[in-house]
Amino acid sequence: MRDPTENDPIAHPLIVPLGDRALLVRFAATLSVAANAAATSFAKKLAQSPPDGVTEIVPSLVSVQINYDPAKISPDRLAAELSLIAWSKLNADGYSGQTWRLPSRFGGEYGPDLEAVAHASDLDVDAFIDAHNATELRVLATGFAPGFVYCGFHGPPLQIPRRSTVRNQVPPGSILFAVGQTAVAATEIPTGWHVIGQTDFRNFDPASSPPTRFRAGDRLIFERTT
């Protein structure tokens, strides 16, 4: 597996149609810190002064979805605007944010896969938790389910594949681990990722404004509680 913590420079992004109501600005085909930083910074910059007719800006792991109203702006004209923004220097500040500390319980009933994951990483359980929590994790993107965040990246010993089978339901707050990333579920979801722990923090409350708190670029620190 390619190490996503390598910092490749990102060439100019590809702008492709995502149907007839959205464009996708894609910074890379594979996930890396550089691609995620570029997508995150681009989305922030675009959101500061979106062209007329843009209805939604959705940052993702390596790309940004831009929804538009075709009665207000043509896709060609929007693509031209987007490439101007992408070609201008993206501010490195775009890839920074708040730091969140998440009290978390690991293993046992909260993390049924912890032992297997530690074993696969050649660590005992405590050493695995310490190594996991020592990683400076950044929120890479929200996606998949309400308030669900992908965080990365762990170094080589902590890069293991997904489970071969999918669990139909894991509870809200589940801390998930696979492919060099930690993800946090905010709602009950099915997942093929390893469940290693649980936090009481819920990154989704439809009654709050905004309904989610984490943003791409934020730092997440997991703190072990018993």
Binding site: A29, S60, V62
Partner: peptide, 10 residues
């Protein structure tokens, strides 16, 4: 594949 945005009709 890296997870990417989905739209209705995909």
């Amino acid at each position: 594949l890296v997870s990417e945005p989905v739209v209705p009709g995909d």
